[in-house]
């Protein structure tokens, strides 16, 4: 498990990962890769194991088998906060901003492990530029924001950590279509301008497939389909199961 192999462009690699909650096996051998600068979608119905896959990736759930490599190094036994420092940042499901902290403070929390004050300030300005809705509320408590603004804040907070790979867990959850479109546009922009790789976990399959380059589809703990998103959009089975016919 040394870094003998050359540093390739693979940012994240899950190989035959298994994980379980007690007796229930949530992941029954999941393999996927994310290359540098890619947007990858991970799709599936409720309980398919998408969130478990994310938890294993971020070190919140210890895998019972298989291996997880992040930027060329095995993540086994590495604590979540260490992985964040290495550039693996998750934007958790359901927004989860800090309601009693102001928007600015929320952003500063995203740069918690960073010490470069100048750069932190620059990133803060960049993100407030990127999300003008947040800029006008910079001094306000996170809890007073609308759902869409909170999701933007959660993403912005994640970007404050200058991630190599950003994991987005259901960013469209409970938001109006118009706001979702805006957020997805910004996600694409971040990917283009900063080269941040993005692993997008979504239930909204059509949206995720339009936004991503490649996609994996999970069913009951296994990857059941994978390929370029365009092809999956045309795939009859996928259409039937996830795109409503």
């Amino acid at each position: 498990m040394t870094s003998a192999e050359p540093l390739d462009k693979t940012v994240l690699e899950l190989k035959d990962v298994r994980a379980s909650y007690g007796n229930i096996e949530a992941l029954k051998g999941v393999s996927l890769t994310v290359q540098a600068g890619e947007i990858i979608a991970l799709l599936g119905a409720n309980g398919a194991g998408k969130s478990s896959a994310l938890k294993v990736t971020t070190g919140l759930l210890p895998p019972t088998g298989g291996s997880v490599r992040f930027s060329g190094r095995e993540t086994k036994g590495e604590r979540t906060e260490r992985l964040v420092k290495r550039g693996l940042v998750m934007v958790p499901e359901g927004r989860r901003i800090f309601p009693a902290l102001t928007v600015k403070e929320n952003l500063l929390m995203g740069a918690y492990f960073r010490k470069d004050k100048q750069e932190i300030r620059r990133d803060q300005e960049w993100l407030l530029d990127l999300f003008p809705a947040l800029a006008s509320r910079a001094g306000q408590d996170g809890g007073t924001l609308s759902g869409g603004e909170q999701q933007m804040l959660a993403i912005a907070r994640g970007l404050m950590g200058r991630p190599i790979l950003l994991l987005l867990d259901e960013p469209s959850l409970g938001l109006a279509p118009k706001i979702i479109r805006g957020i997805f546009q910004t996600i694409g922009e971040i990917n283009r301008t900063r080269g941040t790789a993005i692993l997008l976990v979504e239930q909204n399959a059509r949206l995720a497939l339009t936004a991503s380059a490649r996609a994996y589809i999970m069913t009951t703990g296994r990857i059941t389909a994978e390929g370029p998103s365009k092809e999956l959009l045309e795939n009859e089975e996928v259409k039937k199961a996830y795109l409503g016919g």
């Binding site: 971020t58 919140l60 604590r79 979540t80 906060e81 964040v84 420092k85 940042v89 998750m90 934007v91 958790p92 989860r96 901003i97 800090f98 309601p99 009693a100 902290l101 403070e105 500063l108 929390m109 995203g110 918690y112 492990f113 907070r157 994640g158 404050m160 950590g161």
Partner: peptide, 24 residues
Amino acid sequence: SRLGRAWLALREDETACQAVGVNR
């Protein structure tokens, strides 16, 4: 301070704290 913010954040949401790299 930075530490004080982390304390407040910890009170608010432990999972989110982990997500931004706070050593809980």
